[in-house]
């Protein structure tokens, strides 16, 4: 089955104002750089974006925030972005902050046909407000609902034309769960190969979850916190 599209324009076709998007990545690691640039060009607005972070001021989802294309963010940590914090504190941007493990599991559940689950994370905090609480094994848990999206946009290291994906290092993060939870899942990859070239034992995301795949270009792969040691 061939899921290949020619370029980022074809990959993002159909993304419209007011849609809900999932975007993979942790910080700037493993983000779909090509697709984010295209969303800026398309100038779609009123977006609800589900992503662990909101990029930095001038890269990643920060680019969409600068142009006020995002109406609502669903994230776990947004600390590295001044513009985000400003829009949130002023009330321009709606923000739903979710514990990171709950965010990951809500995406997984959305793709796995599980409508909701109980977790201890957030019990007794403002995250639990308005949520059903139930005790299991003597410990209180809160009910969290599955998340899905009109489009899930993920970034992988290698992919084949059938949409099978392999991620590299810690750039995997939220990408596999989000790939499962999109009505249409777009995968941009650093290297696109023919079917049969990837070892089936080593595929992380089966192509059944991916509808469109293309080889991206010009990856900047910006590093947020460059930390090194010196050779002694």
């Amino acid at each position: 089955m061939n899921k290949t599209v020619n370029n980022v324009e074809e990959a993002t076709a159909g993304i419209k104002d007011g849609m809900t998007l999932m975007l993979g990545g942790f910080g700037l690691c493993g983000i779909p750089e090509n697709s984010i640039s295209e969303l800026v060009k398309l100038n779609v607005t009123g977006l609800t974006c589900i992503a662990n972070n909101a990029g930095v001021d001038d890269f990643g989802l920060g680019l969409l925030l600068q142009k006020r294309q995002i109406k609502k963010m669903i994230s776990s940590y947004v600390g590295e972005n001044d513009e985000f914090e400003r829009q949130m504190l002023s009330g321009e941007l709606e923000v739903d902050l979710i514990p990171q493990g709950s965010l990951a599991e809500r995406c997984r559940a959305g793709g796995a046909g599980i409508p909701a689950f109980f977790t201890p994370a957030g019990y007794g905090t403002e995250v639990a407000e308005g949520k059903e609480v139930r005790e299991f094994n003597g410990k209180p848990h809160i009910l969290e609902l599955a998340l899905t999206a009109d489009f899930a946009i993920v970034k992988a290291w290698k992919g084949d034309t059938a949409g099978n994906l392999i991620f590299k290092g810690t750039a995997r993060n939220f990408n596999p769960m989000m790939a499962m939870a999109g009505t249409i899942t777009i995968a941009e990859v650093e290297e696109l190969v023919e079917v049969g070239e990837l070892n089936p034992n080593e595929i992380h995301t089966p192509g059944i979850f991916v509808q469109r795949i293309f080889q991206g270009s010009g990856y900047e792969k910006r590093i947020e916190q460059r930390t090194v040691r010196t050779k002694s």
Binding site: C107, F167, N175, K221, I223, V228
Partner: peptide
């Protein structure tokens, strides 16, 4: 210095290394 990999960071977004026997996995 010079061996940083943008695809290899910790939860503080700092560049790190992986020791022999290390394993990568998704957030779930």
């Amino acid at each position: 210095d010079g061996e940083e990999d943008a695809d290899l960071i910790n939860a503080g977004k700092q560049t790190i290394t992986a020791l022999p026997g290390a394993v990568f996995f998704d957030s779930a």
